[in-house]
Amino acid sequence: MTAHSGTPHSRRERPSKPALTRDGIVATAVGIMREEGLQKVTMRRLAQELDTGPASLYVYVRNTAELHAAILDELLGTVPPPAAGGSWRERLEQLLGSYTDMLFAHPSLAQSALVARPSGPHYLDLIERVLALLAEGGVPAGQAAWGVDVLLQHATATAAEHATRVGSANAQEEMDTLARVLRETFAGTHPHIAALGPALIAGPPSARRSWGFQMLINGIVHTPVPVAGEPAAAPGGDDRG
């Protein structure tokens, strides 16, 4: 009989797992999202990937909503700062466009971003950049503080709408139907729609996106934040009716 040398090993032994960390959990969640989509990023699926139990994850992330917000914050780190040169308006539009493009690249995340509440460092960096550009343009602090929310809401909603169309097998058919309905609208009942017709959906998406950002920036510049207890006045007008 041949003798075995060395210390016997249990068949149940395997390499030790790396310690769980919030950063590691979020990085794994981002990987799942890239491969399988955000809908697959659940605590159960994440625990399976990390070879642990779902209960272990709740020490680091309270729920799926917080996890999705953390994923959003992680990807916000890929949004580049605007290039040097150009006016503050041009650089602000470039920054907002880069944020929108990041969401375009992750359609399921774009829809989740409408209700996500990120609070991580990359989200703070984005807010800081927007506020700095508004300040450079001389926008009053109160208008900048309210305006940054409106700008990001518009960018997020634009990306979410795009994601819905990308995910629809009938997107082109639906647009064709809408265009036909607008062309055939009866002027007697809907005169304004009939007058504008195709113009309501005309123009390339890039031009409409740029116009939307510029329209909002102009509004932020020229619309004062109402004083507490007083109704907001229309820009450039008065309250006399």
Results as ranks from 00 to 15, higher is better:
residue 22 R to I: 07
residue 83 A to Q: 13
residue 214 Q to K: 05
residue 36 E to M: 13
residue 62 R to Q: 05
residue 177 T to G: 14
residue 39 Q to K: 14
residue 111 Q to C: 08
residue 201 I to D: 04
residue 114 L to F: 04
residue 142 G to I: 01
residue 93 E to T: 13
residue 184 E to C: 02
residue 101 D to Y: 09
residue 226 P to S: 00
residue 191 P to L: 02
residue 172 Q to D: 14
residue 73 D to T: 08
residue 235 P to D: 00
residue 164 T to P: 01
residue 63 N to D: 15
residue 43 M to G: 11
residue 123 Y to F: 12
residue 64 T to G: 09
residue 95 L to M: 05
residue 189 T to K: 10
residue 66 E to K: 10
residue 215 M to G: 01
residue 35 E to W: 10
residue 102 M to D: 02
residue 29 A to V: 07
residue 163 A to P: 02
residue 120 G to Y: 00
residue 133 L to A: 04
residue 104 F to T: 11
residue 219 G to E: 00
residue 63 N to K: 01
residue 150 V to I: 13
residue 74 E to C: 07
residue 9 H to Q: 15
residue 146 W to R: 14
residue 172 Q to S: 12
residue 173 E to P: 08
residue 196 L to I: 08
residue 123 Y to P: 04
residue 5 S to R: 14
residue 199 A to S: 10
residue 173 E to G: 13
residue 46 L to Q: 07
residue 135 A to M: 03
residue 201 I to P: 08
residue 201 I to S: 10
residue 199 A to M: 14
residue 194 A to R: 01
residue 190 H to E: 05
residue 139 V to S: 06
residue 49 E to N: 11
residue 30 V to W: 02
residue 99 Y to D: 04
residue 14 R to L: 11
residue 46 L to F: 05
residue 225 V to W: 02
residue 26 V to G: 02
residue 91 R to I: 05
residue 74 E to M: 09
residue 236 G to K: 00
residue 197 G to P: 05
residue 237 G to Q: 12
residue 184 E to I: 02
residue 136 E to K: 04
residue 139 V to R: 04
residue 172 Q to G: 08
residue 148 V to E: 12
residue 26 V to Y: 05
residue 126 L to Y: 04
residue 213 F to E: 05
residue 207 A to W: 06
residue 156 T to H: 09
residue 44 R to S: 15
residue 175 M to C: 11
residue 232 A to N: 02
residue 78 T to S: 07
residue 101 D to I: 09
residue 31 G to S: 08
residue 40 K to G: 08
residue 174 E to R: 15
residue 17 K to S: 14
residue 161 E to T: 10
residue 28 T to V: 12
residue 225 V to E: 04
residue 235 P to T: 02
residue 80 P to S: 09
residue 89 R to M: 08
residue 169 A to M: 12
residue 35 E to T: 08
residue 217 I to V: 11
residue 6 G to S: 11
residue 189 T to F: 10
residue 101 D to V: 13
residue 106 H to I: 02
residue 22 R to L: 08
residue 40 K to S: 14
residue 219 G to S: 01
residue 125 D to N: 09
residue 177 T to Q: 12
residue 64 T to S: 07
residue 75 L to G: 05
residue 219 G to W: 04
residue 56 S to Y: 03
residue 116 A to Y: 06
residue 68 H to Q: 11
residue 170 N to Q: 15
residue 80 P to C: 06
residue 79 V to H: 03
residue 91 R to K: 01
residue 178 L to H: 00
residue 45 R to W: 03
residue 156 T to S: 10
residue 119 S to F: 09
residue 5 S to V: 14
residue 36 E to Y: 13
residue 90 E to W: 07
residue 13 E to D: 15
residue 229 G to N: 01
residue 125 D to W: 05
residue 163 A to R: 07
residue 179 A to T: 02
residue 224 P to G: 00
residue 133 L to Q: 06
residue 217 I to E: 08
residue 174 E to Y: 12
residue 29 A to Y: 06
residue 230 E to T: 05
residue 6 G to N: 09
residue 185 T to V: 10
residue 39 Q to L: 12
residue 57 L to E: 03
residue 28 T to C: 14
residue 174 E to Q: 15
residue 113 A to F: 04
residue 198 P to Q: 15
residue 16 S to D: 14
residue 90 E to C: 03
residue 70 A to G: 03
residue 36 E to S: 15
residue 38 L to F: 11
residue 231 P to D: 03
residue 22 R to P: 03
residue 216 L to N: 02
residue 40 K to A: 15
residue 34 R to C: 11
residue 87 S to R: 06
residue 157 A to F: 05
residue 23 D to Y: 00
residue 137 G to D: 03
residue 115 V to L: 10
residue 150 V to A: 12
residue 37 G to V: 14
residue 18 P to N: 03
residue 27 A to C: 06
